[in-house]
């Protein structure tokens, strides 16, 4: 049963125009947008879908206050969909939707949909650094910093993080019923999970939390590299969006991160350069803390430069 990863996340929002502007400023491309909502795509067609929170077409949230209404996962073919439907149908309702996808629920109450993936293959080099001695260098005369104003687009929907009331039960569902494996674990928090059809360090991370916190903690898209991700985050912050944590680089997964507040009742992250693992990988376990969750952390500051016109204390006053 090979699930490839996330195809889409569906949110119910208070204000469709506000959420739409937020996602466009993040870098996603609006598709089929109306006053009642629409879809915002990354380069490969994975997306965030939004609708007004009162829209009757939205599934019910798993808990009050959770704006995430459905997590859509992609698979390669209809045979896999049938396998998932048969597996989940053993102990819960599985609905066939008109678009060919199937809908059910996980053991924590999150609504899940599965579909033949919308992911479009694309080929676009990521960030390459000119490290002396490296066999992988940028082509001569190509630039590490693209021209000012170059559009930065998220490449693909990366991962979602859930607050769950019973983390062992939640993990068992994904591992035993849907073929995920644990790649690493934060003791006392929860597991990083990778589905059978992905090499990404994680597409899901589960955090044990009290029942009243159940919901999404964050979600994120992969960007083309750390420079691109930080440049995108910097532009985003300059537009008035509020940084929560970052930029920095995680240790488990190695992904660069920058988290922002959002109108989705959870954080939104930008990430880049996540580790890839296969079944040979042996999961690590770490205690959750500042030293184990990042190898370094930086904080945004306004641009300045030393030189003529700089105050005597520079920007350090």
């Amino acid at each position: 049963m090979k699930i490839i990863g996330l195809d889409s996340l569906v949110f119910g929002v208070e204000s469709v125009p506000d959420a739409a502007r937020f996602l466009v400023d993040y870098g996603l491309t609006p598709v089929d947008i109306t006053a009642s909502g629409g879809r915002f795509e990354a380069l490969d067609g994975t997306s965030i879908e939004i609708a007004h929170q009162a829209d009757p077409r939205l599934p019910r949230p798993p808990a009050p206050g959770c704006r995430l209404r459905a997590t859509v996962m992609g698979v390669n073919d209809t045979d896999t969909l049938a396998q998932i439907a048969a597996e989940l149908g053993r102990d819960r309702e599985v609905r066939k939707l008109t678009d060919g996808s199937i809908e059910s629920v996980d053991d924590s109450g999150f609504v899940l949909r599965f579909q033949v993936t919308v992911r479009r293959p694309f080929s676009l080099a990521g960030e390459i650094s000119n490290a002396p001695g490296s066999p992988f260098l940028r082509p001569i005369n190509s630039l590490g910093v693209p021209p000012l104003g170059t559009i930065i687009r998220p490449r693909t929907l990366s991962h979602v993080v859930y607050f769950v009331p019973d983390v062992l039960k939640a993990e068992a569902f994904y591992v035993n019923r849907l073929g995920f494996r644990c790649t690493d674990r934060f003791t006392g928090a929860g597991p990083f999970l990778q589905p059978g059809g992905s090499l990404d360090h994680h597409t899901h991370f589960l955090i044990g939390a009290p029942p009243h916190m159940q919901g999404a903690e964050h979600f994120t898209f992969h960007f083309g590299g750390p420079s691109e991700m930080i440049a995108n985050g910097y532009r985003f912050a300059e537009k008035g969006y509020q940084s929560f944590w970052g930029p920095g680089r995680h240790i488990l997964g190695s992904n660069w991160f920058w988290y922002f507040n959002s109108p989705f009742g959870c954080h939104i992250e930008m990430d880049a350069d996540m580790d890839m693992h296969d079944a040979q990988w042996k999961p690590r376990e770490a205690s959750l803390g500042a030293d184990t969750s990042q190898t370094f952390l930086m904080k945004m500051r306004p641009k300045w430069s030393p030189g003529p016109g700089t105050p005597v204390n520079g920007d350090y006053a």
């Binding site: 509020q242 929560f244 507040n261 109108p263």
Partner: peptide, 27 residues
């Protein structure tokens, strides 16, 4: 110390009836 707005000055819900922390949705 976690900052609460989702955009500069966006501290309230849509109808202005609640202050919202846009980190995890606390009202």
């Amino acid at each position: 110390g976690a900052p609460m707005a989702w955009r500069k000055d966006a501290y309230l819900n849509a109808d202005g009836s609640r202050i919202v922390c846009h980190a995890h949705g606390a009202e």
